[in-house]
Structure formats: structure tokens, C-alpha cells
């Protein structure tokens, strides 16, 4: 913690004095890196180093239970993982969760953003405070809350409340089948993260020029037409950023699945598969291969979004 302060102080004597133009800009650049460098280096150390180590470990038959049998085996771990139906199953579950949560959250988040945008001041304050509650709550806590409400073995009351709906009976065990487990997992994920997406969309809404909306209404456009022709096109950048961020986050889903099913009934997601392989079964080599593949998936999603849909993250998130 003392590093940046002392670095800055060390830099001060040379930077404080008045200098000629080029010297000054050079010393400014030096001060810039003194100040920004420590944070930059630490970010690299805590992410770049582990992923490189994972890449390296994934080439060995590394198992903590049999360390002396460790051998360099090239890409055989990847062969094993890619040939394992469990991997494809968890990839499919992860993609499914990502697509459904992001789609639903986009709609819900947009409605919430519209509510906050249009509501009278007092109501806006209440809504904004209310939606920050899910944001602030620990994901594990939210997972338990949803789990206990649904699970009949923990006294869940949802069946009693909704027994009038077709398909819901008093003894329906939500966590005994894939479809119903996924429903609760996805619902809790949506509950927890919609606030974030709605706040991003709200600040996007604020950037839609009010005159345009006004003019469209004067010309007799209906609410739906204004939404489709004026509001949405002007918010495209904000929507794309929100979708990309949420998609990348949803793709790493772990907490709720671990708490609710721990992967039972084909609900295992990629993160959980990697965790169970490397930390559960101590198969570091195989687990590293899954970690690397997970990382590649995230890279691919980001690449498609940035190149394919031209999402300018840096541009939208602040100019440089």
C-alpha cells in the first residue's frame, strides 16, 4: 500500500519544477505510470499469471493425489475433456442459463428503467432503493432464500401458494429434475442481477434526446412506435454494453448452482465442472484444461460482441 505513495513522492521533485515542453510531457508521462503502474501490474499479476499457469498445468497429467506420476502429455487433457459428454452437457446448460437470463433481464431491466425514468420523484426514489436490495445481497444468501422457498424438504411454501397452477402439486420436488431446478436457478439469477442491467439501461435512457421523443409524439406516433423508432435506436450502445456485460457474468455462474443442486440432475455449469474437477477431485491438469476452455469461451463471446456487433466498450464506458 505504501508503494504508490512513495513512488509518487519520489517522482515529485523532478516533476514539480517548471520545465521546457517536451521535458514536461515526458515527466508527466513518468508520473502517470508511477501513479497508474502499481494498479496495472497487480491486475496483471492476479489474472495473467494464473491463466498462464493454468495453460501450463493443463499440459500435464497433474493430480495432487499422485504427484510423482506427473507427466507432460501435450494436449491429452483437452482430448479427454472435449471427448467427455459431461463437458458438452455443462457447456449447453451454461449457454442456456446465459441466454435465458440475459433475454429476460433485458426485458425486465428495460421495464424497470422506463419506470424509474418516468416515475414521479418520490416513487423513483422508492423504486431505486428497492432494486438496489437484490444488487447488494450476497449471491449465496439469495440462492438459499430461493432454495428454501421452493424446496419441499426445507419447508418450501411455493407449492402451497401456487397449487392452483397446472403442473404444481403439493409434493412437487423442484430439485429432483433438470427443468424445474433450472427454473429456480435462473429465477434467482434474474432476481439478483436485473438491477444492474436496469441501471445501465436507465443511464442509456437518459441519453435519448427528449426533443426527438416529443416531436414523434406531436406527429401522432403511438407509444409503441416511439419506443421502436426513437428510444431503442438511440439506446443501442447502452443495450449492447449491458447485454455483453451480463452475458459474460452469467457465463461464469457458480454460486446459485453450487448451493441449490451442486450440479445434480444435469444442472452442472462449466465453472462448477472446473471446480469439481480441480478442487473437488484434485485433478489439477484436467481442471486447468476446463478452466482454459472456460476462459476461451469468454474470449469468444467478447470477441463476437466487439467485432460482430461493434460494441465499443471503452468508448461507451468512458473516453480516453
Amino acid at each position: 500500500m505504501t508503494t504508490p505513495a512513495s513512488a509518487a513522492e519520489k517522482a515529485t521533485p523532478t516533476n514539480g519544477k517548471r520545465r521546457r515542453g517536451s521535458d514536461r510531457s515526458r515527466s508527466e508521462a513518468r508520473l502517470g505510470w508511477y501513479l497508474a503502474g502499481p494498479a496495472f501490474v497487480i491486475m496483471l499479476l492476479v489474472t495473467l499469471y494464473p491463466i498462464l499457469q493454468a495453460l501450463w498445468d493443463s499440459l500435464f497429467s497433474l493430480r495432487l493425489t499422485a504427484l510423482d506420476e506427473t507427466e507432460f502429455i501435450w494436449f491429452r487433457n483437452y482430448q479427454v475433456v472435449l471427448g467427455d459428454p459431461a463437458f458438452w452437457q455443462s457447456l449447453w446448460v451454461t449457454v442456456l442459463i446465459t441466454v435465458i437470463t440475459v433475454a429476460v433481464e433485458l426485458v425486465l431491466g428495460f421495464i424497470l428503467a422506463m419506470v424509474m425514468h418516468r416515475a414521479a420523484t418520490q416513487l423513483r426514489g422508492i423504486v431505486r432503493t428497492a432494486i438496489l436490495v437484490p444488487y447488494g445481497i450476497v449471491t449465496v444468501v439469495s440462492a438459499f432464500a430461493w432454495f428454501y422457498a421452493f424446496d419441499i424438504n426445507s419447508g418450501g411454501y411455493i407449492n402451497n401458494w401456487f397449487s392452483w397452477l397446472p403442473g404444481i402439486t403439493e409434493d412437487l420436488n423442484w430439485f429432483a429434475a433438470q427443468g424445474t431446478s433450472m427454473f429456480v436457478i435462473i429465477a434467482s439469477e434474474i432476481w439478483k442481477t436485473t438491477p444492474f442491467i436496469s441501471l445501465l439501461l436507465l443511464s442509456g435512457l437518459a441519453q435519448v434526446p427528449g426533443e426527438l421523443e416529443e416531436a414523434a409524439r406531436v406527429d401522432g406516433a403511438t407509444g409503441a412506435q416511439v419506443l421502436r423508432r426513437v428510444i431503442l435506436p438511440n439506446m443501442k450502445a447502452a443495450i449492447m454494453v449491458a447485454v455483453l456485460f451480463r452475458a459474460l457474468e452469467a457465463f461464469r455462474i457458480f454460486d446459485n448452482v453450487y448451493i441449490m443442486t451442486n450440479g445434480a440432475n444435469n444442472t452442472e455449469v462449466l465453472s462448477l465442472l472446473a471446480y469439481n474437477t480441480s478442487i473437488g477431485r484434485l485433478e489439477i491438469g484436467l481442471g486447468s484444461a476446463i478452466s482454459v476452455l472456460l476462459f476461451l469461451c469468454v474470449l469468444i463471446i467478447a470477441f463476437i460482441a466487439i467485432k460482430g456487433f461493434k460494441v465499443d466498450l471503452a468508448g461507451t464506458r468512458g473516453d480516453t
Partner: peptide
Amino acid sequence: ILTTALAVSVFPVVSIVTPL
């Protein structure tokens, strides 16, 4: 620096945890 921060914030935590 900003791009790195962005990349780090979407980095899958599980990919970091195994080597650590």
C-alpha cells in the same frame, strides 16, 4: 490500462482459482 481493467473484470474467477 482501462482495457485491461475491463478484461480483468469479466475474467472467469474459476480459471484463476485452480492455479492459485
